[in-house]
Design a protein around this nucleic acid. Structure first.
Lengths: 193, 193
DNA sequence: CTAGGGTGTTACCGGTCTGTAACTATCCGA
DNA sequence: TCGGATAGTTACAGACCGGTAACACCCTAG
């Protein structure tokens, strides 16, 4: 069993990481806390010492997942410092990479589909994180000098979101194969105005 | 209890209708067969006399849901006989109506998110039904005289799919509010070529 | 009137789920 | 060396899940 990682990383972080992975792959309602703790090399009591409930764990997983996404954005800025248009194209490449590499969609969107109770604590967090994503893309479009920045950003958002769902329903040979062409076409069309 | 409907409609149809509604609202894993049969004014034994398992019921619900969607398409043809471009605009209006009226997304897409087991019987059905929808939209675009019919149809598909997810994550004030403008803009842009 | 198919009722099986209690083992810092 | 925090173990509670057995009921066709 001695993973190496099991000994060095603290149980709380192992649980968080494992839960993220398992929620992503099998869905939230498709994974029990027992399975998570076992995969994380720990036990249920330790989980409940760090998270007051499964719902709380879900919320923390979503925040962690969003934080990873934000880190990728920082990478765009690092790779193309100041060049906002290049960063926008980098975003498209990143999105296309997601579609090709991962058959499951966005953790927040998937969670919203699964957690239908309107007062579920995760719902307000999902909305908050999704709005932050949207704002960031709008800002990037605006800083790239695009006229109708909000409209382009929202269009790209919906296209990407739709593509991530389409991958789950029709596989990666579906409409999502055209994602890059669609997105690039949109950008040049918006820049032409 | 005498609903009127409870007496006239056969139990099988009541179960199918009720299950569709409840799966749509609360998600598949969020509804048990007991809750379905109770809401349908019948009992579990009767359900299992008509459907061999919950999975089978899920599949039949998806087929029924897709059949209702197909009926709407027939309505487009009836309202604008022969005028394929008008039918395409009718499709956009229908899509926008879905977004405004219903806070939950496409039953097939939601099912694909929830049912992560790759060999789940519903998955091949979802793919089959989604491909039929895609083919129908491609044909409509082509018959409307649009050059890159596949690309337009796929773009509209992804936009709509994304908007239906966005409604679930950010509510109807999110990017989906711009759906009609995006879709109409795309059509005129494709027609201009 | 009667036979039989469709339906309703009750009770149950085995499994899984979230969450908790009580106790033990380990490790690290003072 | 000792004390306290952290983590592991076992067992359990209570609810819910999908699915089945056995039996009573009705309604209609013959």
């Amino acid at each position: 069993m001695a993973d190496g990682i099991t000994d060095r990383v603290r149980p709380r972080d192992r649980i968080l990481e494992t839960a993220q992975d398992m929620f992503h792959k099998h869905g939230i309602k498709g994974v029990g806390v027992d399975a998570i703790t076992e995969a994380a090399g720990t036990n249920k009591m330790t989980l409940y010492r760090h998270f007051e409930s499964k719902d709380e764990l879900i919320v923390q997983c979503l925040r962690a997942s969003a934080a990873k996404g934000a880190a990728i954005w920082d990478q765009f800025e690092a790779e193309h410092p100041g060049d906002k248009l290049a960063q926008l194209h980098a975003w498209i490449r990143m999105a296309a990479g997601c579609l090709a590499a991962d058959g499951r969609g966005c953790d927040m969107a998937n969670a919203a589909v699964e957690l239908t109770e309107t007062d579920h604590p995760a719902r307000r967090v999902i909305k908050e994180l999704k709005e932050a994503q949207r704002d960031r893309l709008v800002t990037l479009c605006r800083d790239a000098g695009i006229g109708q920045a909000e409209l382009l950003a929202d269009t790209l958002s919906l296209l990407f979101e739709g593509a991530r769902v389409s991958v789950q329903t029709m596989g990666c040979e579906g409409p999502s194969t055209q994602f890059v062409r669609m997105a690039e076409g949109l950008i040049s069309s918006f820049r032409a105005r």
